[in-house]
Design a protein around this nucleic acid. Structure first.
Length: 568
RNA sequence: CGGGGCAUAGCGCAGCCUGGUAGCGCACCAGCUUUGGGAGCUGGCUGUCGGGGGUUCGAAUCCCUCUGCCCCGACCA
């Protein structure tokens, strides 16, 4: 490819609203352009990368015996009503009507469609197990699309669905997919890990997420080292508290006017957050408030809270108004003592003696409060996120890292097959409900995640596996030298014939501009042509990560590059 | 959805408070000079100032309204 024939839409400045590195760089490098909130056009350069990821994913899925299909993006409401998700999915499901006022949605995922297909086409156990996959755009009307391609509303996903006669068969395919995903992310060359995960909206039992480790990740994962515990923090149990110390203080009410935050109250009362309890009011199943009590230095875990029977899903905090009218004071003065609403207390909060908490009276807190003496022994549960260095379930200290979820595999069980009556006959001729697994990879997100993990101040540094081009040829002042033009052209033909993807910068630009653009694009290898070099019979070579040039004899350029392409 | 912010040329921004008929940098086009790390000079193009309504002799500027985009959203519970 020649830059004269490529939409090289590089920008010196990124739009002001691009927050994270991958978003800025994808815009600056001319990979994508935003059309609407969370909706992007892929430009030629970006599409090359996206296709690279897709190709690797497809090859490994095929290798694992999965069969590719392509399902519709627009899906009839009937199937979603049949599975029960038409009502449960919520506003993330973009619904629309056709000219006959029939209801449809844009597919955020395809369990219903594949289950419908399989119940029609698969009749016998002899056809099982099967695993169908597709690589297709999905649409999820996210509350808040952000970070560019990372959390877009329309995005490219590989989704696969497997069907089985029994749990053992599902487990086999699940394990195979686990290995396949590992191969995929190994091949792409990302620093990733697989962790135990919550099943969320899709449903099912066992599941693993694959995370690319990066500080900009929206998820937090708990790790205890190689081969140890690895899970999303959402479902990592926090360790139980030790025995509660004996009460020593006398309960007292103190004026704390104007002090609402844990830190403010600690400052005033000369204590620390771990001696304070905070009381969060969330919306209950029936709409009435429910109190959750945590230690002042701990964080509420959303998934754990949502698993409480009397808490409404999705978790929502009660509004300030509701709190004031139903509980008689503002949120900064709440405490568990004397609250006559359902009260759930975190393990750690239940283990504190002589604690500080709000008095449920505007401008007052209580000190020296003790469970079982000043208020009833609490109903104890695990409500919080585990903290760094606390004991993980395997007993080792937890390390907490940030991750970008790029893959997720689930054992769905019979959630969809039962609701949609997907059966087939077993060896004895009995109708058996199929058992399902499902396996997703955010293909477009992988592109963004790769950039998050591989960039510097000058631009993107692509892993070779997904770079849009392997080699950039940069001629200096080519318009002045026919000899130089001929040398570039000759090597370009030679490399192309050898199957190497080359981008020749044939623009009549100054060297600085070409260097800067090629580095922004993140092309792994660069060869610079100059009159000076040709006089010496050499080209200058450097990789995207180098800062020094190496002289390479023109005649050896091809063999040299071949060797480099293998080693890098 | 709640809270906040922004909307002026392709991108980044100023002008708005205090109303007087739109500007800067980059990009783009032409020419000349340059040519090893985002060149210099000269000349040029580019705007329904997000849409609609109102106030006014006059609105980018003040008021109302709609739309779009962005940020934040337990840790004040």
């Amino acid at each position: 490819m020649r830059t004269s024939n490529l939409l090289l839409a590089t920008l010196r400045d990124a739009p002001a609203d691009a927050e994270i590195a991958s978003h800025r760089l994808m815009l600056r490098a001319g990979m994508v352009r935003q059309l609407a909130a969370g909706i992007y056009t892929w430009l030629p350069l970006g599409l090359r990368v996206l296709r690279k990821v897709e190709t690797i994913v497809r090859a490994e899925m095929d290798r694992a015996g999965a069969q590719e299909v392509l399902m519709p993006g627009v899906q009839p409401a009937e199937l979603w009503q049949e599975s029960g998700r038409w009502d449960k999915y919520g506003p993330e499901l973009l619904r629309l009507q056709d000219r006959h006022q029939r209801h449809f949605c844009l597919g955020p995922t395809h369990e219903e469609i594949i289950t419908d297909l399989v119940r029609r086409e698969v009749r016998s156990y002899r056809q099982l197990p099967v695993n169908f996959y597709q690589i297709q755009n999905k649409f999820r009307d996210e509350i808040r699309p952000r970070f560019g391609i990372m959390r877009a509303r329309e995005f490219l996903m590989k989704d696969a669905y497997s069907f089985h006669l029994n749990q053992e068969s599902l487990q086999e395919t699940y394990d195979l997919m686990y290995r396949t995903y590992s191969r995929i992310f190994d091949r792409i060359g990302l620093d990733y890990c697989a962790v135990l995960a919550d099943t969320g909206n899709i449903g099912g039992s066992r599941s693993h997420e694959f995370h690319v480790l990066a500080d900009s990740g929206e998820d937090r994962i708990v790790l205890t080292g190689k081969g140890g515990y690895a899970a999303n923090i959402e479902l990592t149990p926090a360790p139980a508290a030790g025995a509660r110390p004996a009460a020593t203080a006398v309960m007292a009410k103190v004026a704390t006017a104007g002090k609402h935050t844990i830190d403010e109250v600690c400052g005033l009362l000369n204590t620390t957050p771990d001696k304070c309890l905070k009381t969060l009011i969330v919306v209950g199943k029936d709409g009435s408030p429910v109190a959750l009590v945590l230690r002042g230095d701990h964080e509420l875990n959303r998934v754990k809270a949502e698993s409480l029977p009397s808490v409404r899903t999705p978790l929502a905090f009660a509004g300030a108004e509701v709190v004031r009218t139903s509980l008689g004071c503002s949120v900064g003065s709440l405490g568990p003592r004397g609250l006559n609403i359902p009260l759930y207390v975190d393990n750690a909060a239940a283990g504190v003696a002589d604690f500080v908490c709000g008095a449920n009276e505007e401008g007052f807190h209580l000190t020296g409060v003790n469970w079982g003496r000043d208020l009833a022994e609490p109903q104890v549960t695990d409500l919080r996120n585990i903290c760094a260095d606390e004991a993980a379930p395997d007993g080792k200290p937890a390390r907490i890292a940030r991750g970008i979820e790029v893959g997720h595999i689930f054992q769905l069980g019979t959630k969809y097959s039962e609701a949609m009556k997907a059966h087939c006959l077993d060896e004895a001729g009995r109708a058996v409900t199929l058992i399902m697994g499902c396996y997703g990879i955010g293909v477009s997100r992988v592109v963004a995640a790769a950039i998050e993990q591989n960039h510097d101040e000058r631009g993107i540094i692509w892993p070779a596996s997904i770079a849009p081009f392997q080699v950039a040829l940069v001629p200096i002042n080519m318009h002045k030298s026919e000899r130089l033009r001929a040398a570039v052209e000759s090597l370009y033909q030679e490399l192309t014939a050898a199957g190497i993807e080359v981008l020749v910068d044939d623009r009549r630009e100054r060297p600085g501009v070409m260097f800067a653009d090629m580095e922004l694009l993140g092309i792994p290898h660069r060869l610079v042509f100059s009159e000076r070099g040709l006089d010496a019979g050499t080209l200058e070579y450097r990789t995207r990560r180098d800062t020094e040039d190496r002289a390479v004899p023109v005649a050896e350029a091809l063999s040299f590059l071949r060797a480099q392409l293998i080693s890098v």
